[in-house]
Amino acid sequence: MSELLIQEREIVVPGQILAKGMEYLPSHGTYRKDEQIIASRVGVAIIDGKVIRSIPLAGKYLPKRNDIIIGKVIDILSMGWRVEFNSPYSGLIPIKDGTFEFIPRGADLSRYFDIGDYFVGRITNVSGQNLVDVSVKGQGLYKLRDGRTIKVNTNKVPRIIGKKGSMVSMIKRATGCKITVGQNGLVWLLGEPAMEFIAVQAIRKIEEESHIPGLTDRVKEFLEEKTGQPIPEHHSQNDDDEEEQPEGEQ
């Protein structure tokens, strides 16, 4: 007879036995050993009918196809741009995915992206050896000018974005900043310096307090106190070009 030893959304750690018996199936972050399902990384257990998996709570960002990321150009090659994005692996923007502009043969590629430029891109492909292709061509993908980027915990990105982008759009409305959150744990902000600072503080607060219930209310309170005015209900003019990102679960 199969027996489940954990509850939904319980913290699991490597080596912990999650279930006994052949009726349950292992998925991400778990494996089967004889009759047992055992956790293989720190995470939150999710029970999907018979399938047991865990959402990681720690770890570096590993590139995944179709993730929206914020990255930085670190080198210019003959076939495109080498980029880094807060991950153990670097990526490549091929010339054809760099810009909508026509790039003539032998052109100076630094005219389009120079070393040190930041961008919002989409991961188009990840190979078995973790060679990463990035595209900056498409809706909501662009080169970043001005503003600042901050690093946040990759595993807290879904909390910063919130359900259907609710959290980040609240910060946007309150501070009037443009904000883009990359799945890789880099956040880009642009606005009035004082407001930018408040937005960064709010993001840090989300990161630190994401485990305490009632986060949305507390962040709302914090923003209202810092900006000294209630948060506008409707989207401000800055809110149109950002793409709403889905909650990043594996």
Binding site: P14, S40, R41, V42, P56, A58, G59, K60
Partner: peptide, 10 residues
């Protein structure tokens, strides 16, 4: 494990 690395066990 704290670094989020996949491990068979402690």
């Amino acid at each position: 494990a704290d670094a989020g690395i996949t491990m068979q066990d402690m």
